[in-house]
Design a protein around this nucleic acid. Structure first.
Length: 801
RNA sequence: GCGGAUGUGGCGGAAUUGGCAGACGCAGCAGACUCAAAAUCUGCCGAUGGCAACAUCGUGGGGGUUCGAAUCCCUUCAUCCGCACCA
């Protein structure tokens, strides 16, 4: 009887739908296994998406068998540009397109037969859901963490919306790849920088891939240094610079301001004014990509000088776009001798270079490049002779005592540009009143629902399409009752995904975001499975939101995801699967032909889960054959009624051991090969002994259940059980029972393999060595054994000369 | 430029963390079954030499440590990823 995957998988899907296998949580430990919820795109899922979902489902089912009550939910991150762009092109409401895509995704996900609890399904575009997304914003506004500001922000000319820093990748739009420009706009900002230190510190204790922690650490970009005041010569003004190298202050021979620095105009002399204004204008039109493309340093002298506060020397003040306006103070002191960029600038414009640190033990000599390492202080007045490392501290302290400087800490992290000039997002729940200013929409009036519009087309002027709907925009002020206007910007897609993991625990609560009991019951998330692409986007934002919700008492933990697992990408022809490349492999036909169990197993078998793997359709034949082999093995032997032999028992314990240890190490690809190996072994044993014992058969069925749930349920039923195999417990092994009577070990001569010998499990060293010598006798070319090495149970190595 | 990851047969990959390299699977070859094909089963399958037993080489390259290295150290190359004038 051949395994009929279609019929059997259909049968169990129906049974599970009526009797979900994970509904009984009475008295059990909880386990929360979360997938990064998808954006329901029109293209559907490909086998690359499946990999992550299979992984988390296998893990969830494993936890079920370990008697946990498992929360494994699924939902939709459904706001976003593709649905909106579709709406613009085809005139269908984004709601309609999104609903259709969700239905398709759901159909595909059902094919995996993951144990998703569909009663907990959430959708970020559901007003019942985004009511709470807006509620969080209001809370942030009340705490001063959401604020308005007009400033030049990153602007994607193709998506026609502002972007957060995190959404700009190498100067291009994270979503569409267009070159990002600057645009001066009034923006809603979230003060994520207020959490910089906590976001950095709390990374330490997370069980996350080091790579992701490092990316976040670098993104937050903490550096220690000092802010130093330089007087402007002839003016009663000071310019503050930030430096991480106060030790090099004596070597500061010029100063550079960012073109956008607020004092540029003030300090520019009449002779230099025209050149400076031209430069400032040019810089303002340059995109980040252009800035990066320029390897040559450019700049203009302002005509003014600053006074080096330590030695009183006059140093020229320049402006240049290699200084960033929004980092530090937007102004730097330049030490060409000890900074590569300053060195290049000094060379280009013939500015003096003064060395103040020399390599220890070496004489001072003319520099051909910047010396950026530590060393001994020179040309630095009273600080000469001490190490530069020490000088960093000493000079910073001295500046602080003298009142001309201050030790500070700087971060690369910027506040989060939070408003989008698009339609398909959560309206920002703010009302602008000419008298009262920006006023939050009262809690009881939430959600502020998205109104219908005639045109979804972004205006491109920096206003969202909502601005065109007068009857919606015009409202009254909740504070004074006067005429007022609604905020027309919407939130970024990240808003809904920054807290969704909380809502799964209490998805239908209309009184609060999440109840205390449900929060305590399920959260934080035990394991979070998803791709690495959100390393500094979603994962940073979600941590920020969680810390905020902790501060206002909604949750009692500061980190949302205890453990993070990033699955590798599936590539085809060496590239990430995408519709535009035409290399997408759809799971649908594979499920049809081979069944979900085969595809589930193959998704794991393609390679180590954390690494990228190349997809090869032909490989699935191997697991398909394997599933049929297991089927046949168990069907043929289920009624054999043989008693367990020593060998069967030993094999069973070793099987449990191998699968369990590999499972716990997350080596899911070798779990699959382990199953194959042991199935082959058991086939041999069954042949030899005319059958297999019941316990071995049942063990195999249970161990396989997380991987091939349909097959296992069917076999479990066929072996005479009338409850789900998932009511069973994960089998345990006994190391004593795994031991062989005798083992084969290798014999080497000078480290080269000469053969193997069979020895008893506790055989004495002398006897083992004797056997080894007998094996190599006559092969030593008359050389003598000068050393004998025996690693018990492992190897014999005879050193000859 | 800085930082990180990876490199093992024709292919995907394994190796209990210093102890028989190539498990498991794909592809390929040969055979059995079949009128035939598919499916299934059996065997072979790193390279070179040899009829063979076997020998030598072999984990990107070069060097080192060790009785013994895919694994540790130094050096070098290639590919991929992240950051990128952050003072």
């Amino acid at each position: 009887m051949r395994y009929d995957h279609k019929k059997i998988e259909e049968k169990w899907r129906k049974i599970w739908k009526e009797n979900p296998i994970n509904q009984d949580g009475e008295g059990k430990k909880k386990y929360y296994c979360l997938d990064m919820f998808p954006y329901p795109s029109g293209n559907g899922l490909h086998v690359g998406h499946w990999r992550g979902y299979v992984l988390s489902d296998v893990w969830s089912r494993y936890k079920v068998l370990q008697n946990y009550y498992v929360l494994h939910p699924m939902g939709w991150d459904a706001f976003g540009l593709p649905a909106e762009n579709d709406a613009i092109k085809k005139g269908i409401h984004p709601k309609v397109g999104t609903a259709r895509n969700i239905a398709n995704f759901k159909r595909q996900l059902r094919e995996i037969s993951a144990i998703y609890d569909w009663d907990r399904e959430i959708n970020t575009t559901d007003p019942e859901y985004y009511k709470w997304t807006q509620w969080i914003f209001v809370k942030m506004f009340e705490k001063g963490l959401a604020y308005e500001k007009e400033m030049p922000i990153n602007w994607c000319p193709s998506c026609k919306t502002g972007l957060a820093n995190e959404e700009v990748v190498g100067g291009t739009c994270e979503r569409c790849g267009s070159v990002v420009t600057k645009k001066n706009l009034r923006q809603w900002m979230l003060k994520i920088t207020a959490y910089a230190e906590r976001l950095l510190n709390d990374l330490k204790d997370l069980d996350w891939p080091e790579k992701v922690k490092k990316m976040q650490t670098d993104w937050i970009g903490k550096s220690y240094g000092a802010e130093i005041d330089f007087k402007v010569d002839g003016l009663d003004k000071k310019i503050k610079v930030f430096t991480t190298r106060p030790d090099t202050l004596y070597g500061a021979t010029f100063m550079v301001l960012a073109p956008e620095h607020e004092m540029v105009s003030e300090i520019t002399t009449d002779e230099q004014r025209q050149a400076v204004e031209e430069y400032v204008f040019k810089a303002s039109t340059k995109s980040a990509v252009d800035r990066m493309a320029d390897k040559e340093k450019t700049g203009v002298f302002t005509g003014s000088y600053a006074i080096n506060p330590l030695n009183g020397k006059k140093i020229p003040i320049w402006i240049s776009d290699y200084v960033l306006a929004d980092y530090g103070t937007g102004a730097i002191m330049c030490v060409p001798a000890h900074d590569e960029r300053d060195f290049a600038f000094a060379r280009k414009f013939n500015l003096p270079i003064i060395q103040v640190i020399k390599k220890e033990g070496e004489e001072e000599k003319e520099l051909t490049e910047a010396y950026t390492e530590d060393g001994i202080m020179i040309n630095s007045g009273i600080f000469d002779g001490i190490s530069s490392k020490e000088a960093k501290e000493v000079i910073a302290n001295y500046l602080q005592e003298q009142g001309i400087g201050e030790k500070t800490v700087n971060y690369k992290l910027r506040d989060w540009v939070f408003s989008r000039q698009r339609y398909w997002g959560e309206p920002i729940p703010i009302i602008h009143c000419p008298k009262c200013g920006a006023v939050a929409v009262p809690e009881e009036e939430l959600p502020v629902t998205l109104p219908e519009v005639e045109s979804y087309e972004p205006t491109g002027t920096g206003e969202s399409p909502l601005a065109a709907i007068e009857e919606w925009v015009n409202t009254t002020c909740p504070k004074c009752g006067g005429k007022a206007k609604r905020e027309t910007n919407t939130m970024p897609q990240w808003a809904g995904s920054s807290w969704y993991f909380l809502r799964y625990a209490d998805p239908h609560n209309d009184k609060e975001l999440i109840s205390k009991e449900k929060m305590k019951e399920w959260l934080p998330v035990d394991i979070y499975v998803g791709g690495i692409e959100h390393a500094v986007l979603h994962l940073l934002y979600a941590r920020f939101y969680t810390k905020f919700l902790y501060d206002i008492g909604v949750v009692d933990f500061e980190e949302p995801f205890k453990r993070l697992f990033n699955q590798g990408m599936i590539t085809k022809d060496g590239a990430k699967m995408s519709k535009s490349k035409g290399n997408v492999v759809s799971p649908d036909e594979l499920v049809e032909k081979y069944g979900a169990d085969s595809l589930r197993m193959y998704e794991l078998f393609v390679g180590p889960p954390e690494l990228d793997s190349e997809w090869d359709d032909r490989g699935i034949d191997g697991v398909y054959r394997f599933i049929n082999k297991v089927w046949k093995l168990i069907i043929d032997n289920k009624d054999s009624n043989v008693k367990a032999t020593k060998e069967m028992e030993r094999t069973r314990h070793k099987l449990i051991y191998e699968i369990t240890t590999r499972m716990n190490e997350f080596h899911l690809n070798t779990v699959v090969s382990g199953f194959m190996e042991y199935t082959n072994k058991l086939i041999d044993i069954a042949k030899k002994s005319n059958g297999l014992d019941k316990e071995t058969i049942e063990t195999m069925i249970i161990l396989l259940a997380p991987f091939t749930p349909h097959l296992s349920e069917e076999l479990w039923e066929l072996t005479g059980h009338n409850e789900s195999v998932f009511k069973q417990s994960w089998p345990v092994y006994d190391e004593e029972k795994m031991k062989e009577d005798s083992i084969e070990i290798a014999v080497q001569v000078n480290g080269k393999l000469k053969g193997t010998i069979e020895i008893g499990i506790d055989e004495a060293k002398e006897s083992v060595l004797e056997k080894a010598k007998a094996l190599v006798e006559g092969k030593l070319d008359g050389k003598n054994i000068i050393k004998e090495i025996y690693v018990p149970g492992k190897i014999v190595n005879l050193v000859v000369k």
